[in-house]
Design a binder for these strands. Structure first.
Lengths: 354, 354
DNA sequence: TAATGTTATTGAACCGTTAAAATAAACTAT
DNA sequence: ATAGTTTATTTTAACGGTTCAATAACATTA
């Protein structure tokens, strides 16, 4: 690691003081400089290939309250090392990849950088935030409520993505109306004549995405006067394998189920393949609807009928909200709801009489 | 942003000097302290919830050559904003998600953090490296050769993943033997009786992954005494859509092609679905083999026969190599080759006589 | 007992930058 | 011509750590 070119080198080269260089490069408001001085400085910067040291900037500006700028945004995704369960791995579900892609693009455009971290569920992230003096944090999935107080205490803007249960006015939030989505999916199946509808989903933690979608499912059943059956609830993991497992169980004991709502596409695909393997045709024997419209929803055969949420858009919104929050300190809480739409492909079939 | 607890606060609380706190917390070698002092310090740290400021650490230690530690590893993935071509989007190909997941896990275990960035192809990343004083950089795909000199100059360890053409002894490298992989895929098709084999691939840039796989394809043909045909080369993009496009062209004018080697699974799946749409059966009419064994290779129907590369393993190796390089400065160049294996599923069919 | 090591601890310079206060130079206004 | 503003720039003191040289306290050796 060679000694880097510092602001002093630039100052010397340009024949001005370090402060002048700093002011000019940051175009600090309320200060004026001669065009000549400006030019001299810029020329020196060019000549020496000067790039400011971010650590020093962060440190130097940490004196003034509120304007600390590490230009670093943290993004936290739950992920544990777990050989047995893909669902614990960040990108077991490609949803994250797409989302991250959109976030990165926006964040970079705004001149910030993204510091990516997984966390063991429940593990605190606040140390990282403190030690790196992050400008803000984007949190995916359930957020560790212990940290919440700290974020507020230190006034770190936090954007919660797909989080429920924090009505707290401090946090920004981006999500879809998952309950409505669950309702849409189930209602669609009902409209197609299905009455005995199973649901395959991940852990129904309080205030989670799965839980909301499940509520929506119940809403739709209730509306249609269908009594929900406990045995039609398959609660497990959000991964391919659990879908396949659910398929096996379903194949063993169908009890008249004609349709399944899988609360994530990845589970849906596992389910479909599992059913195929068990000799059950989709949608011939059982209809399936998913959720997300992930990349591969259109790739599998038959194409997966699903509730589409615009993941890129979700990422974009989260990033923009973050930047806004960082730049206009103390903005009032904003909640962005990303719209959904039902995509009809080939995994749902109409049934007549029952 | 509240004023943070500093090392001075801890020192005061413990009744020692800041230097002592620093030494104890970093367990600086060659120094001894009374157990009492140690305990006092640790107690104060606990009590005040002290977390060291990384910016200050980085800056403070930047005096001593070689041991600057921002504890930040950069990871660079080519990605541009391009509405028309998914291939330019980082996670258009889920390969990246899986890879990133593995890297993050390893990096975090070693106490480092990952700073994630896309780059417009050809755009320099060196400014980020300098400004953030990154400890090292993991670079995916073709690397901007202009930066290479800078990395060397500043002695920034760089791990090149899936990069060819840098025999430079400064760089570490992780990759698969793509040429061999291309050979394996093609040879397998030949063994199954195919002689008129097309290849669908991304841009054949000099020294790229695609180019290597293409070479392997040629190797296999040559070995079998088959003359490669120009019209059998479909050179485009590494995305779903290009696979579908290639399928259309192929459907319009098959000229006896009975098998296709798609150099990425995502393209393979696009191809298969495109062929289906055009009324061509896979593998009935045309066999397809892919490359990667991405998540959805087993999800599509029929399951995709493909060359599997262990992506998690690739990520793990890249991360470990990085950490090693950072910690043992000036390690000699290492190259890790991740093995492949052929996964037989349902998209290749044997043909007899021709 | 004085000289000599050790061991535990501290003081202070320094890293690269920002920000507040100070200064110098150039204009106004009286 | 003198004081008062305004404009352009510099000086200095942080920011929160690390690290080297210095010191104090204690044990050892001659």
């Amino acid at each position: 690691m060679k000694k880097q070119v510092s602001i002093k080198d630039v100052a010397r080269e340009a024949g001005v003081s370090p402060a002048t260089v700093s002011y000019i490069l940051n175009s600090t408001p309320g200060l004026s400089f001669t065009p000549e001085t400006r030019e001299k400085v810029m020329a020196a910067v060019e000549k020496l290939h000067y790039v400011a040291n971010q650590a020093a900037k962060t440190l130097g500006s940490s004196r003034t309250e509120g304007i600390v700028q590490s230009k670093l945004i943290g993004i936290v995704i739950p992920q544990t090392e777990n050989k047995r369960r893909e669902s614990h791995i960040m990108f077991g579900n490609p949803f994250y990849g797409t989302f991250l892609s959109a976030v990165e693009l926006e964040i970079r455009k705004a001149g910030y950088h993204l510091i990516l971290s997984g966390t063991n569920p429940g593990q605190s992230y606040i140390d990282i935030v403190k030690s790196r003096t992050l400008d803000g944090v984007i949190i995916l999935g359930a957020y560790p409520s212990d940290d919440a107080a700290e974020y507020k205490k230190y006034k770190i803007p936090a954007v919660l993505v797909d989080c429920y249960g924090s009505g707290d006015s401090f946090f920004y939030s981006v999500r879809t109306d998952d309950r409505l989505g669950g309702y849409m999916a189930t209602r669609y199946l009902i409209e197609k004549g299905h009455r005995n509808i199973a649901i395959v989903t991940g852990e129904l933690k309080e205030h989670g995405v799965n839980s909301e979608r499940y509520q929506g499912y119940l809403d739709a059943l209730r509306e249609a006067g269908i009594r929900p059956l406990k045995r039609n609830l398959f609660e497990g993991y959000v991964d391919y394998r659990y879908g396949a497992e659910a398929a096996q169980n379903l194949a063993k004991n169908r009890r008249g189920v004609t349709a399944v709502f899988a609360t994530a596409d990845i589970t849906a695909v596992g389910l479909i393949n599992g059913l195929h393997e068990a000799g059950i045709s989709v949608p011939g024997d059982i209809s399936v609807i998913g959720f997300d419209d992930a990349e591969y929803a259109k790739m599998c055969f038959p194409g997966l009928t699903t509730i589409r949420q615009n993941i890129m858009e979700k990422g974009r919104q989260a990033a923009r909200l973050m930047i806004e929050a960082v730049q206009n300190h103390g903005l009032p809480r904003v909640e962005r709801i990303i719209p959904m739409e039902l995509i009809e492909r080939g995994t749902v079939m109409e049934v007549y009489d029952n």
